[in-house]
């Protein structure tokens, strides 16, 4: 449990607009995530959840608005009234403060589980390999994969791959963990093992933003639930507020379908 220290990780999203071609997928999203809290983003497919998450660590550039982590702009530097795009190098440094877990895992298939976890702390943070390796083994055992350190991703089940991906994200000691539908590509019986690892992390006080369709998980682990539809935040609040007493018609219709 020493590998991840709870550190500030306050995320602010202000008026974010984003278009793909002529199609605007985010129409001005505002969101505040307090340090150490767990935010679950719910909403139908195509509501912009994933795009919002990818905008937060600047995998997508936004057209208007901005994202800040602990008061520091992500992807830009402000000079007067102008936002200057950061150089690739500085952007990569900022990204190390976010851990990102993909729907399709995106493990590096030619590297072993251990090498997947070790790569970034060594090459992006310049930490000594031996120290990182010891820590990586600890992380792998924490996600229940101590014996799979030398396996290649294709030799692992989907659930195991996703747990390696979580360990890989944790190895950077990020301030914020972003999960993009982490269980959507898994067989139903493998969903539980991954959600258990995420719920376990939630209790350690890491700031987390989770895009998911797992309502049960949201109810159990979330401090805040955000419901999005058509590129806007429709409703947000505690699980009790949003899930049990939704105020908005769209939220009610969505929950009626998935619950």
């Amino acid at each position: 449990m020493t590998a991840v220290q709870a550190r500030p990780g306050r995320v602010e999203v202000h008026g974010v607009h984003k278009s793909f071609g002529t199609h605007e997928v985010l129409h001005g999203v505002d969101l505040v995530v307090e340090p150490g809290s767990v935010t679950v983003v719910l909403g139908p497919s195509g509501s912009g959840k994933s795009t919002l998450l990818r905008s937060i660590n600047h995998l997508e550039t936004v057209d208007r608005g901005f994202v800040a982590l602990d008061g520091e702009l992500v992807g830009y530097r402000r000079k007067g009234d102008k936002l200057h795009e950061l150089k690739e190098k500085e952007l990569l440094r900022q990204r190390t403060r976010f851990g990102f877990v993909f729907q399709s895992f995106n493990l590096f298939p030619h590297l072993t589980a251990l090498e997947n976890v070790v790569e970034a702390p060594v090459s992006a943070q310049g930490r000594p390999r031996r120290e990182v390796e010891a820590e990586a083994r600890e992380l792998l055992s924490r996600v229940g994969l101590a014996d799979k350190a030398d396996a290649h991703p294709r030799q692992l089940s989907g659930g195991q791959q996703q747990r390696v991906a979580i360990a890989r994200a944790l190895a950077m000691k990020p301030a914020v963990l972003l999960f993009d539908e982490p269980t959507s590509a898994l067989d139903p019986e493998l969903v539980g093992e991954v959600l258990a690892v995420i719920a376990d992390l939630a209790r350690t006080g890491t700031t987390m933003i989770v895009v998911t369709h797992e309502i049960g998980f949201a109810r159990q682990a979330a401090d805040q639930i955000v419901f999005m539809d058509d590129g806007r935040v429709v409703e947000q609040g505690t699980p009790a507020q949003v899930l049990d007493d939704p105020q908005h018609e769209r939220t009610r219709a969505f929950l009626a379908k998935v619950l």
Partner: peptide, 10 residues
Amino acid sequence: EAAASLGIPR
């Protein structure tokens, strides 16, 4: 994307 999100140098 995975490499970029981990901040691995270009």
